[in-house]
Structures are given as structure tokens and as C-alpha cells.
Amino acid sequence: MVENRFWLNLLSHLVLGLGVLLVAFPIWIAFVASTHSAQGLVSGTIPFWPGDLFLENFSQVLSGGNDGSVGVSAMLMLFNSLVMALGISIGKIVISLMAAYAIVFFRFPLRSVCFWIIFMTLMLPVEVRIMPTFQVVANLNLLDSYTGLTLPLIASATATFLLRQFYMTIPPELVEAARVDGAGPVKFLFDILLPLSRTNLAALFVIMFIYGWNQYLWPLLVTTDEHYYTIVMGIQRMLAVGDDEVAWNIVMPTTLLAMLPPVGVVLMMQRLFVKGLVETEK
């Protein structure tokens, strides 16, 4: 029996509370900064309590009336980031799902060689192959387009590897039973394999969504039109003002808005995360 010790529980809660405060403190400062004027934030003292300009600053950000460093509204940049993140995450999942399905459940020559070739691409991150990839995108006239933002980043060896490892744990008896019942490859994929993979796909979706949302280097290269700027690029342009003062009352609301979609995705997928951890059948 585990002994219930009051002081030990109190110490544990204090440590957890301290951790929450340390994590939440930067977010609180960003929120406070979004409620003050630009002059009040560059005076040399950091306010710790909200001001009275919350609605004014956020309406200015959402309407596009920023400090002039970015000529589009935060809503458009959020939309561009959402398109890019969804395109990358869904594309990665679909391609990785089909690749892992073919490698595990189909018999064809050099099947293992194909998998290890895919796996070896992990040694080539985006930064290593970014110049030839940019050249291909430029030759295809995909610069300043949603296709150019998402298409070169949708292949994922990591997702293929994780899905392959999960599919290899599926009992052969299940595959044989589906074959006896007359289920073809497509029916087996949609009716049996996808329901079994929902927790894995949810976890991959969250990881890939955040990966696509936080992309900076690739959008910086393939976009010159402000109407295709992502929210990460917009924040960087707001900070790159040279010798001028940074409009923190505009940067901080934009930063808070940029945090909302990833946090929302994590919260929506949290139940599947927990279910995937407690299921003992897998």
C-alpha cells in the first residue's frame, strides 16, 4: 500500500505549481504587452498587469493596420500558415500510410531495399537539400503559391517508419480472416487498418501540424509576395525594423494568435493520445 504523506504531497504540488508558473510566465508577459501602448513598452520598465488597449491592439493586428513592416493582416498570415500546416500534415500522413501499407502487406521485389532507401532520407534534412529543392520548385513555376509551400515538404520517412513498425505488429490471422471474408486491399485498408491506426495517425497529425506551422526557412525562400507570408514570417518581419523601435504592442498580439491553432490541435487530439497510451491490446 502506498502511504499517503501530507508533506510529500504538498511538496509535489508546490513543485508542479512552480513549473506551471515558469511555463506560463512568458505567456502572461506577452498578454500584458499586448494590452499596452508601444511607448509604454519601450520606456525601460516591463509592466506586469494588463493595460486598457487590449481590444485596440488586437483589432489593429487583425485588420492589418500593423507597424508597416508587413503589409497584410494577421488573419491572412494565419490562413496561409493553416493551409501550409494542414497540407504538410495531411500529405505526410497519406503518403506515409500508403508507403507503409505497401511495404508491410504487399510482396514485391526489393521491398526491404525500398524501405531502407526511404529510411536513409532521414540523413538528409531540409537544410541540406534546400537549394536543389528550391531550383526544382522555381523551374516548375511554383514560387509564391500554396503548392510551392507544401508540396516539397510532404514526404516523411519518420512517419513511414513509425507506421511500418505498427503494421508489423498486426497479427497475420487478422489479415487472413479479412481475405477469407472477401476484403480486398482497399477494403482492408479503410475498414480494418485505418480504425486500428487512429491513435497513431492522431499523434502523427499533431507532430506534423506543429512542424508545418513552425516552418520559417522554406517559406522565406519560396515567397516574395506578402500575400503568401505565414504567421512566423510575419512576426520576424515585425521584429526586423533596423534602427527603429519594435512595435511590441503589435508583435505580442500576433504571437499570441500564432499560438492558438497548435494549442487547439493538441487539445482536440489529447483524448486519442491518452487512449493510445492506456490501450493494452497494442
Rank of each mutant, 00 (worst) to 15 (best):
F161A: 08
R5Y: 06
M268G: 08
V241K: 02
Q135D: 06
W213P: 13
G87C: 10
L14R: 08
V180M: 12
T223H: 06
F54N: 04
T133D: 09
T121P: 03
A74T: 14
D225R: 15
L220I: 05
V72P: 01
L122W: 12
L76A: 05
L220N: 14
T280H: 05
E127R: 04
D243W: 07
T160V: 03
A177H: 08
R164L: 12
N200T: 11
Y146G: 07
I29E: 08
E281A: 14
L22H: 01
F161C: 08
M84A: 11
M238E: 10
G212Y: 09
L53A: 09
N4Y: 13
F273T: 06
M268P: 04
L204P: 05
G44C: 14
P50V: 06
Q39G: 14
T169I: 04
G91Y: 02
A157E: 12
L18N: 07
G148P: 05
G17D: 03
F188C: 00
A157T: 11
G71W: 01
L272A: 10
D52S: 11
I192W: 00
L189Q: 07
N214A: 11
F79K: 14
I170G: 02
P195W: 05
A247V: 12
A159P: 05
L196Y: 00
T160H: 01
A33F: 08
E281L: 13
P47M: 05
Q60R: 12
V206L: 15
P26G: 02
E245Y: 10
G91K: 01
